[in-house]
Design a protein around this nucleic acid. Structure first.
Lengths: 202, 202
DNA sequence: TGAGTTCTGTAGCGATCACTACGTTAATAC
DNA sequence: GTATTAACGTAGTGATCGCTACAGAACTCA
């Protein structure tokens, strides 16, 4: 394989520019971030942005997908890597407390907060992130149902309600982080939240 | 007192127009709602809007204040009217489950979701709603500290952590409602969330 | 070298943003 | 009646929105 191409080579680091765009969308959301803001932060001109990423919408989609495999990967990892489902959810919440308050990037979760209030024209962006959140919720529910099938969760446990509950806790922790909550406060929230975990089966 | 004034009388119902504006801001947020959207929904022309409410920012402020005394009043009411603090928080969450999914208006809470992602130019709006949320959190904490002082909560209870926890749960329920959660699902979340309430003092 | 290709910066496109100048209309005050 | 006051609709302000036409620059290929 070869990386050489015809024509004038790109004069900026596409990956670095993508990270800059991620941080901007993370902080101000999709509509709160203008193309002018993006080009200024990425250090490129509008034609370069459009040539490299398509348009604002495509750039945002790429940002969200990259976010899911990097900053946001801890959620799936925690649930998948812990054998004990309770430990998996507990670890997910603990890591959320740390990740959402990391001073190295904007607070909270991009998927949760980057498109919560959109104009009628960009309702599709709001819907895209909503679909990601509901997919996460289904992932929670599947993990809980799997735990129940394996006998790690009582038969009476309401997996749907627990899934919505953990989804709400994660989203709430994200917004608390954006509102200024500290890592320590969110850690305590994470521990309190685990009180809802049902008693083990007899 | 007299309600008569000089000059041409207003030809629209100011209160009704304010409600229309509330519903729009509630659904699409501050920046997601344009003055053009507002005038169309309120059935008035831009000069009438500016004469009656000042500007978009002032209208939003009035909407938020009115929201706090109507749709959003159930929170303070629940905490203030229940003698038992645990019952107060439980009632607040139960009523949130119903209010956030009321089909008569947009889902969730306006204070929580109307300005979560703002452009740098309107950061002050985001900050105003943030101040309201942190005030609510302090109200939670004060209620919990009062309960502990009265002996209704154990001395070891972490009132700050509990306040942040309940704030996160409420915010999470609001976003779950916007993401399509049903009243019943949120009711179950409310009940699960109360599991974190500490054991009564010995 | 020259042709072909692709990125670059400048400069500006039409559309929409929040907002308002202006002349008209409809009420009260005298 | 006339004067005064205030809301009305029309029509349009400058600024910013997302996006692009265009020409020059920098590369690979023959």
């Amino acid at each position: 394989m070869t990386t050489s191409k015809r024509g004038r080579p790109r004069s900026f680091d596409r990956e670095a520019a993508l990270v800059r765009a991620t941080l901007l969308f993370w902080q101000h959301g999709y509509e709160g971030t203008s193309v002018s803001d993006l080009t200024a932060a990425m250090g490129i001109s509008p034609p370069s942005l459009y040539a490299a990423f398509g348009d604002k919408r495509a750039l945002f989609t790429e940002v969200v997908e990259r976010y899911g495999t990097t900053f946001g990967a801890f959620m799936d990892d925690a649930l998948a890597q812990e054998r004990d489902p309770r430990a998996g959810f507990a670890r997910m919440l603990e890591e959320a407390a740390v990740a959402y308050t990391d001073p190295g990037h904007p607070a909270g979760c991009l998927v949760i907060s980057a498109a919560t209030n959109c104009s009628p024209q960009t309702a599709d962006v709001e819907q895209d992130l909503r679909a990601r959140r509901t997919a996460n919720l289904r992932s929670f529910e599947a993990r809980l149902e799997d735990a129940r099938a394996r006998g790690a969760l009582s038969e009476e446990a309401d997996t749907r309600a627990l899934a919505v509950y953990f989804g709400a806790v994660v989203q709430g922790m994200s917004q608390q982080a954006r509102d200024g909550a500290s890592t320590q406060e969110l850690r305590r929230v994470a521990r309190l939240a685990m009180s809802a975990w049902p008693e083990p089966p007899a």
